[in-house]
Each structure stands twice: as C-alpha cells, then as structure tokens.
Simulated scan of single mutants.
Amino acid sequence: MVVVVAAPRGRDGFEPWRDIPAVAARVLRPRIDAIACELVETIRTEVGGYRAAPNTDVGRDVLAAVRRAVAQFVSLIENPVAPSSDDVEFFRRLGRTEYRNGRELDDLQAAYRVGARVACRRYAQIAQAAALPMTTVLSISDAVLAHIDNLANESAKGYAEAKSHGVDDPGRRRRALVERLVRRNPPEVGPSTAELAERAGWAVPDALACLVVDDPGGGRFRFDPDVLLLERAGELTAVIPGPRVAAACAAVGGARAAVGPVLPVAETWLSRYCARLALRTLPRSPEVIAADQHLLELFLRAGEPLGALLGRRGVDRLAELGAGKAARLAETLAALLASWGRSAPEIAAELGIHPQTARYRLRQLDEVFGDRMGDPDFRYEAETVLRLRALRRRG
C-alpha cells in the first residue's frame, strides 16, 4: 500500500513553497549534488559531532541526509502534495540512529541550523544569478526555514520514539562507547570515553586492538564479554583488550579477517585503520592477518597513488629506454639502493650477472639520472617507488 502524505506544513500552516514558481526548481535541480556537498563541508567544519571524513560511515550518513533534504526541497517546489512518506520515515530514522549510537540530539539539530543558513544563502545566489524576481528569492528563504524546521521536528520525533523503547538499553551504551573509540577525532563535546565506559560497565584496558572481519554472517562468532562489537555493512569490528587478542582471533577462525596492532586506547582508530587496510590491500589468507607484521607494506600500499606520482618524476625516465632495458636497469637500481655503495661485483653476484654487465648498467644509470644518484632524497624516492612496484607485481 502506498501512503500519500500531504506536503509538510510550516508553523501555523505556513507553506511558503506554494509561492515559489516552478522555474526555481528547474534552476536548482541540476545543482543538487553541488549544493549538498557545500552544505556537508560547512556542517563538518562547524558541528563537532560530524567532523568525520567523507569516506567514514558518519560522513556518508551526513551526505546522504543532506542530499535527501535538498532533493526533497526541490521536489516540494515542483509539487507541494507529492508523496513524502519515505522522506518522513528517512528523517525520523536519523533521529532514531542518533539515539541508538549514544549521541544526544544537539549535534543533529545544530546541523539542521547550519544547513538552513547555508542553503538560504546559496539558493538566493542561484536565484539571483538566474534573474528570478526578488519576491521569489525571499519566498525561497522562507521556504528553506520552514522545510528545515519540519525535518528537524521529524528527527526529534524519531529520537523520542527510540528513547521511549530503549531508555536503559545496555547494547546502546556499549555501541556508543565503541563508536567513540574508533573515531580518529571524537567530538570535544559530550561524554568522554571514561564516562561512556562507566555507563557501559566496561573496564578500560591499558591497551587494545581492533579485529576486523569481512562478511561476519550475522554474529556467528563468540567473543569474551569484555570485547566490544560494531557491525555495519557486512563488516564486524571487535575492540579487544590486549590480553584477549589471541582468543578473539581464534574465535573467527576460517573467516576473512585482520587484526591491528595493540595500541593505547586513544589510538583505537589506528589499530582499526591498519586492520581494514590489511583486509583491503593484502592477499587473501586462511589465517587472521596480523597487520603489525606488514606495516611497511601497508604504508606503501596506502600511498600507492602518491607513489605513482613519485615514479613519474623520477624512475619513469627509464621507460624512455624501452621496456627490456628499463626493466634491467630498474632491477640494477633496486639492488644498488638496497645497500648504497655496493660495488659492481657485489651487485652482479646478487643479480646473477657478469660483473662487467653490472658496470655497464651502473654507467647507464649515471647517464639517465646524473647527479641525482648522489641525492639521498632521490634515492629514497626511487627505492620507495621500486618497492611499491614489486608489491604490486606480487598482488
């Protein structure tokens, strides 16, 4: 059954979107994505609880919500009585999510206020650039405020609904704690890690590690009670006190998983980052991947795009010599850089070639790179690029 909900009303039945001509929607619609991105950047800058990077779960949630709000506003201008039950549910769900994640409603309401301010300014600029009448510009500003007020009210209802059904939910308190632990830059406002841990009845350890499991399969693993869990989008993160790491890894035997290094509590995010990076970049393994045994490789793989740029300005000059010769000289360069100052016979022994061949290749390298061969920065860059390429060949 499709439920058709009339257009939202402002306070006292005020509906300023009815005064906006449809041409305004045609001007705004092509700019929905650009407007949403601008609003998100401002919200991330001004609202502490939403400073997460765009590629985090919180960052993606904020972008989805803002884009939904902008698109709904444009649709409201086009058709004030369009079906909107899905939108109502979406913004109520935002409020429920805030509660279940252990956050107060203050950050979400602040985000609405910031969004309204920026949207009013941006919409007015677009309308004026399109030579729309000033009365339309003013109506748009009134409509934005009424629209955001409605969305904020729906989210407040969702928050209140969730709160009424889970006032003393232990799972919510543990989730709020783990959400804060895995944030690189947790908000400065709100309860501290120690306060959240006390509410959750969790003893804060001296150090911990994050175990990340790909496709956990609905909670089929059995962990010790003091392991905190966060599951979303087919990924399970287990925050584990240091002494429990071995037992937790054994509990996920057979699953695709990686464990980050054991670190101080304030660096929980870093342990998780290492584990996730290991899962994403290292070859599959039947065992749990110990990220701290591959830190250099993870470092290189994480910077792979930058490594490609370094290669363009340095090592890629070898490509001008042709594929075969470039490969041989790159091999020789790698052997030389592995222990600077090696003699031609030593390089020849490592590569299994004649010393005279090694001398010839070294002269060619001098011809290609000249004085740069004596520059420590260049040698470091070149070795980094060559190591990265070797990793790529290994898969």
Results as ranks from 00 to 15, higher is better:
Pro225Ile: 15
Lys157Pro: 05
Leu28Ser: 00
Arg31Ala: 06
Phe299Ala: 14
Ile353Lys: 01
Ala334Ser: 12
Thr193Leu: 10
Leu388His: 09
Pro80Trp: 10
Val4Pro: 00
Arg92Cys: 00
Pro376Asn: 09
Gly171Arg: 15
Arg68Glu: 11
Leu296Gly: 10
Gln364Arg: 15
Ser139Phe: 03
Ala6Leu: 12
Pro187Lys: 12
Ala111Ser: 05
Arg394Leu: 12
Arg272Leu: 14
Thr45Ile: 05
Pro261Thr: 07
Ala348Glu: 03
Ala291Trp: 04
Leu282His: 06
Leu388Pro: 05
Ser339Trp: 11
Ser192Lys: 10
Ile20His: 01
Ala7Phe: 02
Leu351Glu: 07
Leu298Asn: 00
Asp215Lys: 15
Ala129His: 05
Gly242His: 04
Asp107Trp: 08
Leu177Lys: 02
Ala129Lys: 05
Phe91Glu: 09
Glu350Asn: 00
Arg372Lys: 13
Val118His: 00
Gly48Tyr: 00
Ala124Trp: 08
Ser84Lys: 02
Leu388Val: 11
Leu298Phe: 03
Gly260Ser: 14
Ala247Pro: 09
Pro305Thr: 14
Ala323Val: 10
Ser139Gly: 13
Ala349Met: 02
Leu333Asn: 09
Pro305Trp: 14
Leu138Thr: 10
Cys210Asp: 03
Ile140Pro: 00
Leu310Thr: 08
Pro186Ile: 05
Thr42Gln: 08
Leu298Met: 03
Ala53Trp: 05
Asp12Ala: 09
Ser139Gln: 04
Val204Ala: 06
Ala6Val: 11
Glu331His: 09
Val252Gly: 00
Val70Asn: 02
Ser271Trp: 01
Asp215Thr: 10
Pro264Thr: 13
Leu351Asp: 07
Asn79Ile: 12
Gln72Ala: 07
Arg284Gly: 12
Leu263Asp: 00
Trp202Gln: 04
Pro170Gly: 14
Leu309Phe: 09
Phe14Gly: 05
Val259Pro: 03
Ile140His: 02
Glu179Leu: 11
Trp202Ser: 04
Val252Gln: 03
